[in-house]
């Protein structure tokens, strides 16, 4: 029963959501759309519980780091202190309170932006490796990327007025054809996985059989 009940719930909920996407079905005040909306509201409640579990997981791991004085334990201490303070301020004063907003925009947003900015350096190092002309494929990639970059920068048009047109052609035809192949394959693959889950053939999300 431990396996059957989740599989039945998955099937029933899946069928309701699919039917609601396609059809307007209802008797009196009860409609499929209402049931579907209610189910989606339940997922929000489950998500809220899951957030509690996640917070417990975080506290358990980091309090163990502090207790056992593992390397970098002071980072765990900083995390727990800031987490407790932010949660306390958020719950008691609301997330729109000046204090919460100050910490959010003054600390979290700049740290987030800093991590994001690392991407520029990672792109450079990855591009350096990817664009080395080791074989025919890599050479085609190198030449194409060079033309596309040239076409995107103002200097490209100065060198030859048709560079932006060549870039546009590369992006709109060979690149788009490849992209569509991947999109179609992925969409069909996702649908097939959905069917496997819906009919109970795929149960790995419940743990091992």
């Amino acid at each position: 029963m431990k396996r059957e009940i989740p599989l039945v719930i998955t099937f029933v909920v899946g069928v309701i959501i699919i039917l609601d996407y396609f059809f307007k079905i209802g008797i009196g005040t009860l409609s499929l759309a209402t049931v579907s909306m209610e189910i989606q509201n339940w997922t929000l409640i489950i998500a809220a519980f899951a957030l509690g579990l996640a917070a417990v997981n975080l506290l358990r791991i980091h309090s163990a780091n502090i207790r056992l004085k593992r390397p970098g334990w002071y980072n765990s201490l900083a995390l727990i202190i800031t987490m407790v303070i932010m949660s306390f301020v958020g719950i008691t004063q609301g997330t729109n309170s000046p204090l919460y907003r100050y910490w959010y925009t003054g600390f979290l947003v700049p740290v987030d932006a800093t991590i994001f900015s690392l991407l520029a350096f990672y792109i450079t190092s990855a591009a350096y490796r990817a664009f080395r002309a080791r074989n025919v494929d890599a050479t085609i990639l190198l030449v194409t990327a060079f033309v596309v970059m040239l076409g995107r920068a103002p200097v490209g048009e100065l060198i030859w007025k048709d560079v932006p047109r060549v870039t546009k052609w590369l992006m709109d035809y060979p690149n788009m054809a490849g992209q569509r192949g991947i999109i179609i394959g992925a969409a069909v693959g996702a649908l097939s996985l959905g069917l496997r889950i819906l009919i109970g053939l795929e149960r790995s999300y419940l743990g091992q059989d």
Binding site: A186, G189, S192, R196
Partner: peptide, 11 residues
């Protein structure tokens, strides 16, 4: 694993 390949691994 490109797109659909990822969805096929379980099978």
């Amino acid at each position: 694993l490109l797109g659909e390949e990822m969805f096929a691994v379980g099978a």
